[in-house]
């Protein structure tokens, strides 16, 4: 695995500069059933295609951001910081 990821703050960097947070896995809103909680904690969709995921610029600015990446080609379609709080 080797490609370039663009940190929204710092610009393009080797992927080894970043920490991977996995696919975006929204937390259940409130009081999930046991199954919902199990799915949230332990199951991932693991798609072969474009996936929205979390990355952290660990060896750089430290920011967490979203990336959309094609898991088959490692093509990164976009990276963006979470919207600032309203």
């Amino acid at each position: 695995m080797s490609y370039v990821l663009t940190c929204p703050n710092c610009g393009p960097r080797e992927v080894t500069d970043f920490g991977f947070g996995g696919e975006v896995n929204p937390r259940p809103r409130s009081d999930p059933s046991e199954r919902e909680l199990g799915v949230y904690n332990y199951f991932r969709r693991n798609v072969a295609g474009v996936q929205r995921e979390w990355w952290c610029h660990r060896s750089g600015c430290g920011a967490w951001f979203y990336a959309e990446r094609d898991t088959r080609t490692n093509e990164v379609l976009l990276t963006e910081l979470p919207e600032p709080a309203a």
Binding site: C56, G62, W64, E83, A85
Partner: peptide, 15 residues
């Protein structure tokens, strides 16, 4: 822990 804190902070966007 720093990464964990900052991750949730990015998600929750608290002040």
């Amino acid at each position: 822990v720093y990464q964990w804190f900052s991750w949730w902070l990015a998600d929750w966007r608290l002040n």
